[in-house]
C-alpha cells in the first residue's frame, strides 16, 4: 500500500477523489448560500449596524 502511494500512477485518483469530495461539499454550500432569500441576506449584512443606533461611549477610568 505505501509503495503504491509513492510510486504508482494510479495515485492521481487520490487527488481527483479529494478534489471531487471538496468540490461537491463546496458547491452544495455555495448553492445554499446563493439561494439565501434577499431579506435574510440583508438582515445578516446589517448585523454590524444593529448596535449603532443606541451605542454610546461612556467615560471609564
Amino acid at each position: 500500500m505505501f509503495k503504491r502511494l509513492i510510486l504508482e500512477d494510479s495515485s492521481i485518483w487520490y487527488i481527483i477523489t479529494a478534489f471531487v469530495t471538496a468540490a461537491t461539499i463546496f458547491l452544495t454550500i455555495a448553492w445554499r448560500a446563493l439561494r439565501m432569500p434577499r431579506a435574510e441576506a440583508d438582515k445578516f449584512a446589517h448585523l454590524p449596524f444593529t448596535t449603532d443606533a443606541n451605542e454610546r461611549h461612556d467615560p471609564h477610568a
Binding site: 463546496f26 448560500a33 439565501m36 441576506a41 449584512a45 446589517h46 454590524p48
Partner: peptide, 30 residues
C-alpha cells in the same frame, strides 16, 4: 466587520461572504 462600518454601508454580498468562508475552510487546509 470593520470595512462596512468604516464605509457606512453593509457588505456588498452577504451570500458571497458565506461562499468565501466555506470555500476557504474546505480548500486552504489541503
Amino acid at each position: 466587520y470593520f470595512l462596512p462600518k468604516a464605509a457606512e454601508r453593509p457588505v456588498y454580498s452577504y451570500r458571497l461572504s458565506v461562499v468565501h468562508f466555506w470555500s476557504l475552510v474546505f480548500v486552504y487546509i489541503w
